[in-house]
Design a protein around this nucleic acid. Structure first.
Lengths: 163, 163
DNA sequence: GTTTAATGGTTCACGATGTTTACTTTAATA
DNA sequence: TATTAAAGTAAACATCGTGAACCATTAAAC
């Protein structure tokens, strides 16, 4: 025999790792695809572009946001935010007032119609994720979440390690 | 006391579910964001648009693909594929020949340069996912994968249930 | 066997997402 | 006060994507 037990063990571990990483890659891709479909479905259902929907959901707690703050939360350039806001203002879902303390700043807030939309949207989202959780047994739910937590941290770690 | 024990139990279970579903939503969003960053990083590194990279990675096993097949795999309209192919052909990463059996069909294959790129890319991807797995203990890896498997099926289930 | 689908691709017009650069206005600071 | 920094906007550009009209070619129906 050419291989010692150790070599064989290491080799089969490598094969396993390769198999698992392929599986992981496929799974992540499928999950990504599913999320994309969900987003585009909601966008059509509400007849509002995805970026504007994403923006609507930022007003969870805070009454007012600034363009800069929105840009940071959405992780886009601030010029992009201007255009998104134009869309939302045209649809009367959002309105902007001048900051009384600083004339450079515009405070952006939901209109009452915007609030309705926003609540509607977040209700759908939490409902959706609850249904997702209910597909698991109660004991499994904690596990799923901790799994994803580790996965997320690992992804961050690997990302930083990549640069 | 207003509530019986059962009511209290049910209520606290609901609270837990609400908390968990919020957590799940956040986690998925963060993971999504991480993946998006990764994709855009690779696109810049290779100096190839994301859609073209995605296309390059389709040539895993098969020697030739058709525009229609690519459209299905990428889940885009076929007119989109034409444009992606134009980009890849201009970069000499791909070339198309006429199907000898059916003059309507163009067979699309990687050039040798395209093969290099494609292999390079998939090497990076598997390396990345292996690193991801290595962040877990060996016993945990199976668990992560099965977790994601259930998650994916659940997402499909919930999606279908939504329409 | 000619007419009639259906199929595979391309093109064009459009809209959405996003970046970069340059430019205003206003605020802070040296 | 003159300069610099910050917030927002506007214009030019690139990418991603769809839908409809269109051309060839092949397959099906009569």
């Amino acid at each position: 025999m050419l291989h010692t037990m150790n070599d064989q063990g290491r080799e089969s571990a490598d094969v396993l790792l390769g198999y698992q990483s392929q599986k992981l890659q496929d799974l992540i891709e499928e999950i990504l695809h599913c999320c994309k479909e969900r987003t585009s479905h909601l966008s059509k259902k509400f007849d509002i572009p995805e970026a504007e929907l994403r923006c609507l959901m930022l007003f969870g707690e805070e009454r007012y946001l600034t363009a800069k703050g929105i840009a940071q939360k959405l992780d886009v350039a601030k010029s992009r935010v201007t255009k998104i806001m134009n869309g939302l203002i045209r649809k009367k879902l959002v309105e902007s007032i001048d900051d009384p303390k600083d004339a450079r700043i515009k405070l952006i807030g939901l209109t009452s119609q915007g609030q309705r939309r926003s609540k509607e949207l977040s209700a759908i989202m939490t409902d959706l994720h609850q249904k997702l959780l209910l597909e698991f047994e109660p004991e499994q739910r904690k596990m799923v979440i901790s799994c994803l937590e580790v996965l997320r941290s690992s992804m961050e770690a690997v990302k930083n390690q990549m640069l």
